[in-house]
Design a protein around this nucleic acid. Structure first.
Lengths: 183, 183
DNA sequence: ATCGAATGAGACATTGATGTCTCATTCGGT
DNA sequence: ACCGAATGAGACATCAATGTCTCATTCGAT
């Protein structure tokens, strides 16, 4: 009977990522609850968005922790990160898209931290020789977000099988589309 | 004095991609015109979105034509496509994001055509041996959209230099982040 | 089975965006 | 320099979403 706040937020993220103009009523329906109940849990649209931010940042931090980015080769760390990020993907996608994240003109502090951690992985990989150095960490970070979002979208839309999510993203991000001559 | 319809639509796309909930007034300001004028050219928000769809599809078709995807090696064709797509990026990003493109439950016919053309490039590349075959054309297509969107966003936000747009996208999409052992 | 808490559905007032209109001003062509 | 067309600014009515409320119902715990 009691509403699962986290589940509601995940459903909201999935919907709002694809249709940012969705009504509070649509969000409620997507989460399988009534509009009144949605309002009981989140004072309004702003409160909902802020809750999404908070949960997204929190789950993303958790994913980064579990991926243990400092352990072992960076390409393997990246694969672990992709795996951990899978179920946070809609939420992450919402955070990246939704630029309500910007308070005024400066970036959200919590988001800056996420950004720094992902970016550090790429930088570390460049220093160790695992990653190429002609693509900036900032771009690789941005590309990572973009591919995770595209992957989540492709899966949700049935264009990619859910089981292939991690492989498709990690392989493209690491190896690209070109067929390697080596091997 | 006269409003440049295309310029207005590009400005609208750039704004709406980042902030889908933007007001008609905000769109007008972003395009540097008054709200009344915006309404004179586009009957309403729906009309504006439909005009964005139309222009986006049209410019995307043009980019695909100019890229001459059937000529020469597929990786070079992809580079040409990235180059041609650069100035359409915000519009493309809007089209990919905005799922008003779906009329009811089926995909927009114009969009399906774009999708087919991009997808065909990847399939052709797989058949010729230029691209790897363990990543589906559907996914490569989706990834292409995602990276173009991320690139446009990164440039607009100052995280990537505009002059690096084509290189960053093409290199990541073709070669990935991993440092090649060969060469 | 009972009771209390939470929910869903709907009514309602409020708010903000929208769409239309007018009018003064500016721009472009002649 | 003149005239017509287009624009910007603002006023205004309308409409849709929002936020609040009530009440019957359902769920879960005891």
């Amino acid at each position: 009977m009691s509403v699962d706040r986290t589940q509601v937020l995940h459903a909201a993220a999935a919907l709002l990522t694809r249709k940012a103009t969705a009504t509070m009523d649509e969000v409620a329906r997507a989460a399988g609850i009534g509009r009144a109940t949605l309002h009981r849990h989140f004072a309004g649209r702003d409160a909902l968005v802020r809750a999404l931010e908070e949960l997204g940042l929190q789950e993303m931090e958790g994913a980064l922790d579990r991926a243990a980015l400092d352990d072992g080769p960076e390409d393997e760390a990246l694969r672990r990160l992709v795996a951990e990020v899978e179920h946070v993907a809609p939420l992450l996608s919402f955070l990246v898209t939704e630029n309500q994240l910007f308070e005024g003109d400066q970036q959200h502090v919590g988001w800056a931290r996420i950004d720094a951690r992902v970016s550090a992985l790429f930088r570390s990989g460049q220093e160790s020789g695992a990653f190429r150095i002609d693509l900036t960490p900032a771009w690789l970070t941005e590309a990572f977000y973009g591919l995770v979002g595209s992957g989540a979208w492709a899966v949700q839309d049935g264009r990619v099988a859910a089981k292939d999510f991690q492989y498709m993203i990690a392989e493209l991000l690491l190896g690209g589309a070109r067929r390697s001559v080596e091997k």
